[in-house]
Computed example of a mutant assay.
Amino acid sequence: MSHSQNDTPREQVIQPPPGKHEAPMPENPVGTDQARQGETSGRVRWVLGAGVVLVVIAFVLAFVFSV
Rank of each mutant, 00 (worst) to 15 (best):
A50K: 00
G49E: 03
S66F: 12
G49C: 03
G38V: 01
M1P: 06
T32A: 13
D33S: 14
S41R: 05
V64R: 10
V30Q: 12
P9F: 05
L54S: 03
G38I: 01
R45A: 13
Q34P: 01
S41Y: 03
L61E: 05
S66V: 04
A62C: 09
A23W: 10
V52E: 00
P17L: 15
W46M: 08
A62V: 11
S41P: 00
A35Q: 11
S66K: 11
E27P: 05
I14H: 07
H3F: 14
V53C: 08
T40G: 09
D33N: 13
V60N: 01
T40V: 07
A62Q: 13
F63M: 10
W46I: 08
G49Y: 04
Q37S: 14
R43A: 08
V13K: 09
D7H: 15
A23Q: 10
P17T: 12
V53E: 00
S41A: 05
E22P: 01
V44C: 06
D7E: 11
P18F: 02
P9D: 12
A23V: 11
S66D: 11
A58T: 01
P17W: 12
S4V: 04
Q5I: 14
P16Y: 10
Q34D: 15
K20S: 14
Q37E: 15
A35H: 05
G31A: 07
A58S: 12
N28H: 15
G51T: 07
T32C: 06
Q12M: 14
H3Y: 15
V13Q: 12
R10A: 13
H21Q: 13
E22V: 08
V64Y: 07
V60A: 15
E11C: 00
M1E: 08
F59I: 11
S2D: 11
V13H: 03
V56Q: 00
R43N: 07
E39Q: 06
R10L: 15
Q15M: 12
V64T: 11
L61D: 02
P29Y: 07
V60R: 02
V67D: 08
W46T: 10
F59Y: 06
V13M: 09
K20T: 07
S66L: 13
L61M: 13
R43E: 09
S4P: 00
R45Y: 06
M1K: 04
F59H: 01
V53M: 07
P29F: 06
N6I: 07
P26G: 03
G49P: 00
A50M: 10
A58M: 07
R10I: 13
A58R: 01
F59K: 00
V56W: 02
V67N: 09
G19Y: 05
H3C: 08
Q37G: 09
R45G: 10
Q34F: 04
P29N: 04
G31K: 03
A58D: 02
P18N: 10
R45W: 12
H21V: 00
S66E: 06
N28Q: 13
A35F: 12
K20W: 08
